[in-house]
Amino acid sequence: MAAEGGMSLVVKTVTRWLKGLIFLFGMYIMIYGHLTPGGGFAGGVICASAFILITLAYGAPEAYRHLPRGAAEKLDSFGALTFLIIALLGLWFAGVFFRNFIGTSPESHFRLTSAGVIVPCNLAIGLKVLSSLFLVFVMLSALHIIVSGEGRRRIERRRHTP
């Protein structure tokens, strides 16, 4: 818990209230991507921006407390693999790569379950985009390109020592 790092108390409090709502909105965009505008990529970016907000307001350690780096790397690979496995399951069950093997029926139109494999595909892409964008942002801040506070002090020290 970076108590002194990060931004001011106002930003931290607002972040504490908003992070769940942003994540929820991202998940909504992801899951309902086949009915309303949006989809896996946009929802994943919105969810990642919730974690990036935490990184900006509290610093990277607090963000790692929410989503550890190992978990983010595994989630990235999990999303990509799930997408590929869904495609291969279409080949296995219906004989065509990426075939919608769950299928659809006219009665289920405009429901959450209407689109068969599109919902899990959207979820897989969303999780992948979420974790990969979060990882890139945090890795960049570990490189002192985007650090606040400590990193800038370290850069200052390095500049003053010849």
């Binding site: 991507g33 086949h34 009915l35 309303t36 505008p37 949006g38 989809g39 896996g40 990509a80 997408f83 590929l84 495609a87 790569f97 990426f98 919608n100 299928g103 659809t104 029926s105 289920s108 139109h109 405009f110 209407s114 689109a115 068969g116 494999v117 599109i118 595909c121 959207n122 892409i125 992948k128 985009v129 990969s132």
Partner: peptide, 26 residues
């Protein structure tokens, strides 16, 4: 496809190869 949003229908059903390639690139 059963997807009311035709953009998603194209992205994840008709042209899912494109999306797989895009996911691979990412």
């Amino acid at each position: 496809t059963g997807a009311a949003n035709s953009v998603t229908a194209v992205l994840l059903d008709f042209r899912a190869y494109d999306t797989l390639g895009e996911a691979t690139v990412l």
